[in-house]
């Protein structure tokens, strides 16, 4: 593992985004209980890791994150950045009281945000597509991740309202 191959715009972009995102997490009124805040931050980190190490590495190797195919510190920072996206997805899901058919529009909206962010990341040199991968393939990834996140949050909400949730939810 290395810090980075060259310190240039992609590293600066990640660090600025990271500072902005965690500042927003800190500043925004706390609407989610602390366990869920922690859970969905880890959820975002884990989903980005799964997709990056499965599609972006190994046998498929569809894209390169940052300057090289080696593991850089900036790669790790990228996953910490993804963690906040998952948190804010659930945060606004709650704040905007998303229900029923609005779930579809909410997921589509976040997919557009995801695509826009990925385009910016690509322009800033964070993601480099290879082996015939195109940005529109990421729509599939966003739809899977966001639908799973929304459904999982709904499941947790259902379990949470059951009696004695703090000690027994199953």
């Amino acid at each position: 593992m290395m810090l980075w191959e060259t310190y240039d715009k992609n590293e600066i972009y990640i660090i600025m985004m990271l500072l902005g995102a965690y500042l927003a997490v800190y500043i925004f009124p706390k609407k989610l209980p602390r366990p869920l805040m922690l859970l969905f931050l880890v959820w975002g980190f884990a989903t980005s890791t799964v997709f990056d190490f499965t599609l972006g590495g190994g046998l498929f190797d569809y894209y390169k994150v940052n300057d090289s195919n080696k593991y850089e510190l900036s790669d790790l920072l990228t996953y910490f950045l993804f963690a906040t996206f998952s948190y804010f997805f659930v945060y606004f899901y709650k704040v905007l009281r998303i229900r029923n058919v609005w779930i579809i529009f909410y997921i589509l909206g976040w997919t557009c945000i995801g695509l826009a962010m990925e385009k910016v990341s690509s322009l800033m040199g964070v993601t480099h597509y290879q082996s015939g991968y195109h940005i529109y393939y990421s729509i599939v990834v966003f739809l899977i991740v966001q639908t799973t996140t929304a459904l999982y949050y709904e499941l947790i909400k259902k379990k949470w309202t059951e009696p004695n949730h703090a000690s027994h939810m199953d």
Partner: peptide, 22 residues
Amino acid sequence: NIVENTFVYLVILIISINYSWF
């Protein structure tokens, strides 16, 4: 409970993926 199980699963998943990569 479901939150604890999910959290432990995700932490182990992250470690497992990173360890394999290294």
